[in-house]
Design a protein around this nucleic acid. Structure first.
Lengths: 336, 336
DNA sequence: ATCGATGGTTAAATCGATTCACCAGACTCG
DNA sequence: CGAGTCTGGTGAATCGATTTAACCATCGAT
């Protein structure tokens, strides 16, 4: 008992397979009563189009692939929703791959998307995958970088001005009168992280005030932040920073846990600011200052860029949309 | 300039397409030097297997589909990671669909997965999709229900005993001496929600103490919780509950925001408990009591059940794994 | 010397939807 | 009235990988 195919449908409806396809895809007009017969047959047989066959013929899938660094980070989850919403309006499903910041997994998903001939790809890359992405594009799957400004300008992208974000954060801490800063960041291969770090360093240089030390983490999750907190606490009190800028809110939350647990007062002893302004930031034990990125809008914008390239391909013209980050002050710095 | 296919590879390597396929799939032994010639040719041409053609022939995709209620909920993100880890070990990619608790979107993704002939499906259903799932199974895609005990026992499932979870939560509130409870829950069509609600009601009945009122929300997100908070605040003070059980932590966090914002003291005026014990619960403004579910393990277990059914199908024997929920007490109830 | 095995390889059939060139009528218009 | 134009419909060819039956050496055993 094999599953029904177009031929069975055609036979039952008393038409040719071509007509069935025309009904399915509205590619050519079909008389109303013929269409009804076909639809009835489809219904009766429980026919479901075999997407593999369709793709094989058409050469491309309708679905769009998306690779995110970490689905459990609410920031990416919001980006995803924005993209999914817009793509949904255009009848394109979005499938999600979760690299978990692992290069191996990223490559595995790229293989998958390439074999599936996805119609396009939204990606926040982890490793050095420029060549892979170019190959994908040559094969007909345009690529849009998300939250990652492309230096070479060879892909469309949406990004936030992370340099500016870093400046905002560190500038704010300096404005509070803090002079001994620390930046706690994820792996520097992640461009956003190094940009935020550079922005912070620039702020310090520009104002010619204070100093900033850099701490490097393996991941950008809350546990890593907690570990970094222990590290800070281990420093001799005199050397301890009086303000910390975390590369994202999860890290900041981890730090906050470690610090408050050890009796350090935030912001009195150490002021703390995060990045992303995820919804939990406002509701942390001590409401967290942060740098807001418009996640949902970024997702929509990225999907728009991608759709444009899918629908009229091959003009080799890449657009870049840069969103401006925004400082959100809460109790973890200054308060009132 | 079309992309290379097996025929091109075969030509360049001086063998037949059958041999190329044998190299690709190790389905038959191939002489070492022949294999090398083929691999070189693949490399030179940048050949990437067309998955659509493969699927068409084989009848099934290797990928597993997963439908979650809400990717931005850390609980589901953890379940996803657990499943993805295990499936990854078996060389099966996982693609994620996000229903966002919308029945329309759920159906759209089911269509997609059915058209793609995924090799299996992990799903936390929103709507009444039993028939659809049965059809998927008949078509060769086994289905495992996640975090949703199947009454009819007709699918394998992993679940948490939500009835017990509800009892634990409400029982704990009653043990604190609270007598005027409220349950704030998502749409009752979601079985987990109604189970938690029933558990809570049972606890009240069993102890024959106090009363519990039920509030219904449209979604399970923090905003909904905030709205519910306003609703509670609008009640005359005498009628206001002295303890609230939220159907998940996001709702609880929303409630917490609304209540503390209005000057209500938690837990003194109103004790508050959530569900899921997501990592943010411990770090909310007032650390949140919650009912813990072992998310990661549930994901792994679900993936295991699914793999078993994929690998030896059609025995019509369905297994159910039930995890036990666990009460985690923090400051939002009792404090210390 | 012959018969099986066995290891490698091949050519052709196959999966199922889409498309394209083509056809049959009906209708319009000069 | 005949040429041209629509509308609706047909069916064979096609996409690219896998699979199966068949075939060919080569070697060992009888």
């Amino acid at each position: 008992m094999t599953t029904a195919n177009v031929r069975d449908v055609a036979a039952l409806a008393g038409v040719s397979v071509g007509t069935v396809s025309n009904v399915l895809n509205r590619s050519k007009p079909v008389a109303a009563d013929t269409a009804k017969r076909v639809l009835d047959a489809i219904d009766k047989l429980g026919f479901v189009r075999n997407d593999a066959a369709r793709q094989l013929r058409v050469g491309q899938s309708r679905t769009v692939g998306m690779m995110v660094l970490d689905v459990s980070n609410p920031f990416f989850a919001d980006v995803e929703r924005g993209a999914e919403d817009l793509l949904g309006e255009h009848g394109r499903p979005l499938i999600l791959g979760n690299s978990g910041e692992s290069i191996t997994r990223e490559l595995a998903y790229l293989d998958l998307f390439e074999e599936q001939r996805v119609s396009g790809l939204l990606i926040t890359p982890v490793g050095q995958v420029q060549r892979r992405l170019e190959r994908l594009r040559e094969r007909g799957s345009p690529v849009v970088l998300v939250d990652r400004h492309d230096n070479a300008q060879s892909f469309s992208s949406v990004s936030v001005d992370d340099l500016r974000g870093g400046e905002l954060a560190a500038g704010h801490l300096l404005d509070l009168g803090r002079r001994n800063l620390a930046f706690v960041g994820g792996p520097p291969e992640i461009l956003q992280v190094s940009q935020r770090a550079r922005g912070a360093q620039q702020a310090v240089l520009e104002r010619d005030a204070g100093r900033i030390r850099m701490l490097e983490l393996d991941t950008m999750r809350a546990e890593a932040g907690r570990a970094a907190g222990e590290q800070l606490l281990a420093l001799p009190a005199a050397d301890r920073p009086d303000a910390v800028f975390a590369a994202n809110d999860l890290i900041a939350i981890g730090l906050l846990q470690a610090l408050t647990h050890a009796g350090v007062r935030v912001p009195d002893d150490i002021a703390l600011i995060g990045y992303d302004d995820i919804s939990f930031a406002a509701n942390a034990a001590i409401p967290l200052s942060s740098i807001r990125q418009p996640a949902r809008e970024m997702g929509r914008a990225a999907a728009e860029l991608l759709l444009a390239e899918i629908e009229n391909p091959g003009r080799g013209e890449y657009r870049h949309i840069a969103f401006q980050p925004e400082l959100v002050v809460r109790e973890s710095t200054a308060g009132r």
